[in-house]
Nucleic acid binder design. Structure first.
Lengths: 228, 228
DNA sequence: ACCTGAACACCGTTCAAGT
DNA sequence: ACCTGAACACCGTTCAAGT
């Protein structure tokens, strides 16, 4: 397997030595996103950030999507794990909120997040949140079907919130948020018209946690009723 | 204001006659999406679909995003409106489901859907679903704050479901859905491991409507408790 | 074994010139 | 008033050639 023709190779390997590595690429990608923004992460820019040719990256990643998945997994994996409460209902809420907060830090991962079965791509180290939700549902008395449905429902709510708010935040900092209508036809949409400009004030509030609690309670009650 | 130098102009206008129009552009865009897929909608392709120069389109639309907003509004506006039930709770559920179904037909509108305040971009003809939800919440006894929060929560859930499932569906038909893990470490994630291959079977089910009902009930109960 | 530049097949958008 | 081609500043990815 090994060759002995090459000179000055520290390891027992043959051929041209690597100029970069997976870890280096992922760190540079993160640095680039944090500094220049998510939309600036391109293969070409990432390569020049590393000082290598663009095509070199294709020896370390399959394609751009593979880079995204690796990036998310790499960083979710180094998150520290908060203690989960004892009660099953609260365990679900805390685990889901932790999942939300973890992903909300990397809202750029939309392409990855919106893959059904995304969970199957992750390492065990990033799956304790999923496990926490499933364990809580099970302990509450849910069937496996109900537990999976509960998880998926919460997942949709969480992904939706992250994507909408991330997108909005980006537009705000780019200063190109479309001006919001405050006047509506009171004959056709009376409630909307009555709210008027208050909508805007109310819409910027962070209602994820309180909505999550309502959802978990609703889902658990529904599961109970189904089994009764 | 008017000029009289140009010849053979049917209308009283001056200058070169238009080769296309807003309506023609929107119809062509829809045709292109339906035929070739969402990701094939580019300014250049759309122009050649119409048989005009790419730069011509910039006289009818501001930029690509403007095209998307107009496209969504144009098609949501021609949806027919189902009757809403009398009870406030059921009204919310039916209106939200109608909103979901309408948007799920154009899941490509992700860029538009994930703009907070997206509602403010729409015409009254497309807002009866929003109005239906707000009216139901109000009639149930919700405060304006609670009604807006209820709507936003449902909106996040709905958008998340649409985006995840649309993305998954696209990958399936492109035949590049990542293979799903079915084996997990039973010591670290016992519930996930116990589910194993069943997850995949359960995850393809359409659980949007049943999840919606649980969410609405949870949100209304929460609102009641807050006011008690 | 790994790296590279050239090339391919695209994008959205601007702008000066034409009708 | 409206249309146009050329041009600008980019993309992701492939491939043959180099070390």
């Amino acid at each position: 397997m090994e060759s002995m023709s090459s000179s000055a190779a520290p390891t027992g390997r043959t051929g041209r030595p690597p100029v970069t590595s997976r870890a280096e690429i992922l760190t540079a990608a993160r640095r680039l996103i944090d500094r220049d923004g998510w939309d600036k992460l391109t293969i070409r820019r990432l390569a020049s950030e590393l000082g290598v040719g663009a095509t070199t990256l294709y020896h370390h990643i399959r394609d751009k999507e593979d880079l995204l998945v690796q990036l998310l997994e790499y960083h979710v994996g180094r998150l520290d794990r908060p203690p989960l409460p004892d009660g099953p209902r609260d365990r679900i809420v805390v685990a889901a909120a932790a999942m939300h907060d973890a992903l909300a830090s990397w809202p750029w991962a939309a392409e990855v997040l919106t893959t059904d079965g995304f969970v199957g791509l992750l390492d065990e180290s990033a799956l304790w949140m999923v496990e926490g939700i499933l364990a809580g549902a099970d302990e509450h008395g849910c069937t496996p079907e109900q537990s999976v449905r509960l998880f998926r429902s919460i997942w949709y709510y969480t992904v939706g919130e992250i994507l909408v708010r991330a997108h909005t935040a980006r537009r705000v900092e780019e200063g190109r948020l479309p001006e919001f209508r405050t006047v509506f036809d009171a004959d056709r949409v009376p409630h909307l018209a009555a709210l008027g400009a208050r909508w805007r004030t109310l819409a910027v509030r962070d209602t994820y946690p309180v909505g999550l609690q309502a959802f978990v309670d609703g889902l658990l009650a529904q599961a109970d009723a189904e089994r009764a």
